[in-house]
């Protein structure tokens, strides 16, 4: 069903009439070569209820305006390329179904906020990834694993950080955070989520280094618990909960 955008959009097929709707998208466009500042542009597209915003963007790009620029790769909620602000909330375009939106009104689509806007729906993700790298998001251990074996971990120890392993680095959380909008130096929820993933991993031995990094003035204490990140995360990660756990670990001095 989700591939419907590829089919010819000529009337419903005789054996299975599926209703198509005219949906208006108002997209915040910005072309650095011609625009001084972003502008809103509207497009009408024929959509099925089971289509997604990503399909609408494809239809616009392929049939109406080839200059529309956005990122996407997997189209199935895994690669994290297409976080954008849809009707005022951060979501993945590939996981936002037309039927879940009110199409009697236009749908507003714009780039995520707080990162430098490059073109249309594309922002410069580098500051976001720089914060991610800073928390050392990789397993560190001074001890050798058992010979020819993996590092053993109990089910309970694995469950301790299960939630934060699900992150796809889409930046929906970080760019929904009012603190991050006004203070780009703040590590942001995604970096803290990915630090949490290793801080609470029983096989890792660098928790105290990461806790030190996040005890910084621009670290976890910037969090004002607005829960925008938790509401925005397309993976359902309890982001604010993870940040609170890191705050507590810093106060305790250990994970």
């Amino acid at each position: 069903m989700t591939l419907v955008a590829d089919a010819p959009a000529s009337g419903p097929a005789p054996e299975a009439p599926i209703e198509a709707f005219t949906v208006t998208l108002i997209i915040r466009r910005f072309d650095p070569d011609v625009d001084d500042e972003p502008r809103w542009q509207d497009f009408d597209v024929q959509m099925f209820a089971t289509d997604r915003i990503l399909d609408a963007l494809h239809k616009i790009k392929w049939e109406q305006d080839g200059s529309l620029t956005f990122r996407r790769s997997c189209a199935h909620g895994i690669c994290g390329s297409d976080a954008m602000r849809i009707n005022g909330r951060n979501r993945l375009a590939c996981k936002t179904l037309i039927k879940d939106l009110d199409i009697t009104k236009p749908i507003y689509v714009e780039a995520i906020k707080g990162l430098p806007l490059e073109k249309d729906l594309i922002v410069d993700m580098e500051p976001f990834f720089a914060s991610y790298r800073e928390v050392q998001p990789f397993l560190q251990s001074a001890t050798e694993p058992p010979k020819d074996k993996e590092r053993i971990q109990s089910v309970a120890d694995r469950a301790r950080f299960d939630d934060t392993t699900k992150c796809i680095l889409c930046a929906a959380c970080t760019s929904s955070c009012p603190v991050f909008w006004t203070d780009g130096q703040y590590f942001g929820p995604a970096a803290i989520v990915n630090a949490h993933r290793f801080i609470f991993d029983s096989r890792d031995e660098a928790a105290s280094t990461r806790l030190d990094i996040l005890n910084d003035k621009e670290g976890v204490w910037r969090c004002r618990t607005t829960f925008n990140c938790t509401d925005a995360c397309p993976r359902g990660i309890q982001v604010t909960q993870a940040i609170a756990e890191v705050k507590q670990a810093i106060m305790r001095g250990k994970p």
Binding site: T24, I26, R28, E37, P38, R39, W40, Q41, D42, F43, D44, Q64, D65, R85, N87, G88, R89, P106, Y108, E110, K113, S176, P178, T226, F227, N228, D231
Partner: peptide
């Protein structure tokens, strides 16, 4: 494509709809 007919409103972007 009705581009440009019923457009702008807040060129700065929409207000974030937090909960």
């Amino acid at each position: 494509n009705t581009a440009g007919t019923m457009t702008p409103k807040r060129p700065a972007g929409t207000l974030y709809r937090g909960r």
